[in-house]
Write a protein that binds this DNA or RNA. Structure first.
Lengths: 213, 213
DNA sequence: AAGCAAATGTACACCAGGTGCAGAAATCGT
DNA sequence: ACGATTTCTGCACCTGGTGTACATTTGCTT
């Protein structure tokens, strides 16, 4: 059906990749704020105007690579085995991610990944973009919960917020450890334990949160 | 000791207020993106440079009014009566906010508030800023939990993310209802019920989230 | 009351992200 | 091979934000 993408389409994809690659390379080398889009455009041999035709904002030059992850949890929940609870599906997926050193779990210590993480954290506008990203993931998950767990809308949204928040925090925490020099392998056990604790908290609630003062 | 603020200080506060008021008025009238900071500066009879001396970014012209709320939950948790659980303290505080129609609960239908909410939601950069705001609230709450509930750091952060997220979602939901024309009074009962449900979810966990598919 | 130091405000030039527009160049279908 | 359509480009322009050098105001001292 679509055996031939057509020259136009192919060229578009090449240009897209060329711009993105040039951008990431420059950003990693000198930092997000220290590189102007004009420089990126020049490095990619494209006009500034064309660059903005492919990527609506400078931040998108980085963030578009995570676009798939935006709906990842929603897909996991939708694809769960019958009889499985959404929370269980997400937990298992996250633990699998840890084992596979999926960068999104924060447990990947390849230099490239570490530098990328560092670069993002050093750029406030990129961090802000990540928050928007997280919010979008919440919405997607909420919808998946509502549709597959027979849950009222509000409950779905509340649950989604909690689940995404916990997963995000766990990933952040792993990334923090690695940023301080720990290796993925040595962090691994702690990461698993922390994940188990986080998901247990989600499952059992905050009932046991201290009442002393 | 500080009975007299001093002329310089008073003038500063007046200028600060003048700029902020001019900004809000213009933004409400024509929308955040449709007003340039230059116009705000002119309306406040101040140079652009001075405006930026008072407010680091355009968004701050709006968001600075919420600055107090950033640490609100943290303060509530710290000031809770002995023998009270952090979660209980937050729930009671939120319910009190609903009764008092505190705008931050989303249950205030004064035209000014509605228009402000609308204005913020219509401006992506402001929404992004609210997300940053939320993240800061999470950090503050996490610290309060850690210090007053004798909780390990990660647990505190996980709990904080969940609590702030739920409260935020509840407020959003109320604001949505009012934005669709419902009055605060007619929404009130539903808001309370939803809040109870949200906090119950927090307390009891997501254990009962459907496993069917 | 005078006068000086510190703080504050201003004008101006400048940078970077982003957009509108008109025309050049490439691609596509025939 | 050719016209129609997309895509790319250069250019002018707007806006948020900053650096700098100078003017003004305030506070304090005597």
């Amino acid at each position: 059906m679509d055996g031939k993408p057509g020259l136009r389409e192919r060229k578009k994809q090449r240009t897209h990749a060329a711009i993105s690659d040039a951008a990431i390379a420059l950003f990693l080398e000198r930092g997000f704020n220290q590189v102007s889009v004009a420089e990126v455009a020049e490095a990619a041999e494209v006009s500034k105007r064309t660059l903005f035709a492919y990527f609506p904002t400078k931040e998108d030059l980085v963030v578009h690579r995570l676009a798939d992850h935006e709906t990842e949890l929603a897909r996991v929940v939708r694809a769960r085995r019958p009889g499985t609870t959404p929370l269980t599906a997400v937990r298992e997926h996250f633990l699998a991610g840890l084992r596979e050193r999926d960068p999104i779990t924060g447990l990947n210590d390849h230099p490239q990944v570490l530098r990328l993480t560092r670069m993002i954290l050093d750029a406030p506008t990129l961090v802000a973009r990540m928050d928007r990203f997280k919010a979008a993931a919440e919405r997607a998950l909420a919808q998946a919960l509502q549709e597959t767990a027979d849950t009222p809308e509000l409950t779905a949204r509340l649950a989604a917020v909690q689940i995404v928040g916990v997963r995000w925090t766990l990933a952040q925490d792993n990334a923090d450890h690695l940023a301080r020099g720990e290796s993925a392998d040595s962090r691994s056990a702690g990461a698993v334990a922390d994940a188990e604790q986080g998901f247990a908290l989600l499952e059992n609630g905050l009932r046991d949160l201290g009442s002393r003062h």
